Lab assay of single mutants.
Amino acid sequence: ADDEVAKLLVDAYRKNDEDKLEEVKKRYNISDEQVKRLIRKVL
Rank of each mutant, 00 (worst) to 15 (best):
A1M: 15
A1W: 15
A1G: 11
A1D: 13
A1H: 13
A1F: 15
A1K: 10
A1I: 15
A1R: 11
D2W: 15
D2E: 12
D2G: 09
D2S: 11
D2L: 14
D2P: 11
D2H: 11
D2I: 12
D2F: 14
D2V: 10
D2C: 15
D2R: 10
D3P: 09
D3S: 11
D3Y: 12
D3F: 11
D3W: 14
D3T: 09
D3M: 11
E4L: 12
E4M: 13
E4I: 12
E4R: 10
E4T: 09
E4H: 12
E4W: 14
E4F: 14
E4Y: 15
E4K: 09
V5H: 03
V5C: 11
V5N: 01
V5L: 13
V5S: 03
V5Q: 02
V5P: 04
V5T: 04
A6K: 07
A6R: 08
A6C: 15
A6L: 14
A6N: 06
A6D: 04
A6M: 13
A6V: 14
A6F: 12
A6S: 09
A6P: 02
K7Q: 12
K7W: 14
K7P: 03
K7Y: 10
K7V: 07
L8T: 04
L8Y: 04
L8K: 05
L8F: 04
L8D: 03
L8P: 01
L9Y: 01
L9W: 02
L9F: 04
L9P: 00
L9H: 00
L9Q: 00
L9I: 13
L9D: 00
L9V: 08
L9K: 00
L9G: 01
V10N: 03
V10W: 15
V10C: 12
V10Y: 14
V10E: 06
V10F: 14
V10S: 05
V10K: 04
V10T: 07
V10M: 13
V10P: 00
V10G: 04
V10A: 12
D11Q: 07
D11K: 04
D11F: 03
D11C: 14
D11E: 12
D11H: 05
D11P: 01
D11R: 05
D11M: 06
D11V: 04
D11Y: 04
D11A: 08
A12S: 03
A12G: 02
A12R: 00
A12L: 09
A12P: 01
Y13K: 02
Y13G: 01
Y13Q: 02
Y13I: 12
Y13D: 01
Y13N: 01
Y13V: 06
Y13E: 01
Y13H: 04
R14I: 14
R14K: 11
R14M: 15
R14G: 04
R14C: 15
R14T: 11
R14A: 08
K15S: 13
K15E: 12
K15Y: 07
K15Q: 13
K15L: 13
K15G: 08
K15H: 13
K15P: 01
K15A: 15
K15W: 08
K15R: 14
N16L: 06
N16C: 15
N16W: 07
N16Q: 10
D17E: 05
D17K: 03
D17T: 02
D17N: 06
D17A: 04
D17L: 06
D17C: 03
D17H: 04
D17R: 05
D17Q: 06
D17F: 04
E18L: 15
E18N: 15
E18V: 15
E18C: 15
E18Y: 15
E18D: 11
E18S: 14
E18F: 15
E18P: 14
E18A: 15
E18Q: 15
D19M: 12
D19L: 13
D19Q: 14
D19G: 12
D19V: 13
D19P: 07
D19R: 14
D19W: 10
K20I: 09
K20L: 14
K20G: 10
K20T: 12
K20R: 11
K20M: 14
K20C: 09
K20H: 05
K20Q: 10
K20A: 15
K20V: 09
L21R: 02
L21P: 00
L21W: 04
L21N: 00
L21A: 03
L21M: 11
L21Y: 05
L21E: 00
L21T: 03
L21K: 02
L21F: 08
E22R: 12
E22V: 06
E22M: 11
E22Y: 08
E22C: 10
E22K: 10
E22D: 09
E22N: 13
E22H: 08
E22W: 08
E23G: 04
E23T: 05
E23D: 07
E23L: 07
E23S: 07
E23N: 05
E23K: 07
E23A: 10
E23H: 05
E23P: 01
E23W: 13
E23R: 07
V24A: 03
V24K: 00
V24P: 00
V24D: 01
V24G: 00
V24T: 05
V24Q: 01
V24N: 01
V24I: 15
V24M: 11
K25N: 00
K25T: 03
K25D: 00
K25P: 00
K25S: 04
K25W: 02
K25F: 02
K25V: 04
K25Y: 02
K25H: 01
K25M: 10
K25I: 07
K25G: 02
K26P: 00
K26V: 07
K26G: 04
K26H: 07
K26W: 05
K26E: 05
K26C: 06
K26Y: 06
K26F: 06
K26I: 08
K26D: 03
R27F: 09
R27S: 05
R27Y: 08
R27K: 13
R27D: 02
R27E: 05
R27P: 00
R27G: 02
R27C: 06
R27M: 12
R27Q: 10
Y28W: 07
Y28A: 01
Y28S: 00
Y28Q: 00
Y28M: 02
Y28N: 02
Y28L: 03
N29T: 03
N29P: 00
N29Y: 04
N29V: 03
N29L: 05
N29G: 13
N29H: 08
N29Q: 08
N29W: 02
N29I: 02
I30V: 06
I30N: 00
I30M: 13
I30Q: 01
I30A: 01
I30L: 15
I30G: 00
I30Y: 05
I30H: 00
I30W: 09
I30D: 00
I30S: 00
S31R: 03
S31Q: 04
S31E: 03
S31W: 02
S31P: 04
S31T: 13
S31V: 02
S31G: 05
S31M: 02
S31A: 04
S31H: 03
S31D: 09
D32R: 03
D32Y: 05
D32S: 07
D32L: 04
D32A: 08
D32N: 07
D32W: 15
D32G: 04
D32E: 08
D32V: 04
E33P: 03
E33V: 07
E33W: 06
E33Q: 07
E33Y: 06
E33F: 06
Q34I: 09
Q34F: 12
Q34C: 10
Q34L: 08
Q34M: 13
Q34T: 11
Q34S: 06
Q34K: 06
Q34P: 02
Q34N: 06
V35W: 11
V35T: 06
V35M: 13
V35G: 03
V35Y: 11
V35E: 03
V35F: 14
V35I: 09
K36M: 14
K36W: 13
K36R: 14
K36E: 12
K36A: 13
K36L: 13
K36G: 08
K36Q: 13
R37G: 08
R37V: 11
R37C: 14
R37F: 09
R37M: 12
R37H: 11
R37A: 14
R37K: 12
R37L: 12
L38A: 04
L38G: 00
L38S: 02
L38F: 05
L38P: 00
L38N: 00
L38Q: 01
I39D: 00
I39A: 03
I39V: 07
I39Y: 02
I39F: 04
I39R: 03
I39P: 01
I39C: 07
I39H: 01
R40N: 12
R40W: 14
R40P: 02
R40L: 12
R40F: 14
R40Y: 14
R40C: 15
R40S: 12
R40K: 10
R40G: 09
R40A: 14
K41S: 11
K41C: 10
K41Y: 10
K41N: 10
K41D: 08
K41T: 10
K41Q: 12
K41F: 09
K41A: 12
K41I: 09
V42P: 02
V42R: 06
V42Y: 15
V42W: 15
V42F: 15
L43V: 06
L43D: 04
L43I: 08
L43Y: 08
L43T: 05
L43A: 05
L43W: 08
L43M: 11
L43P: 03
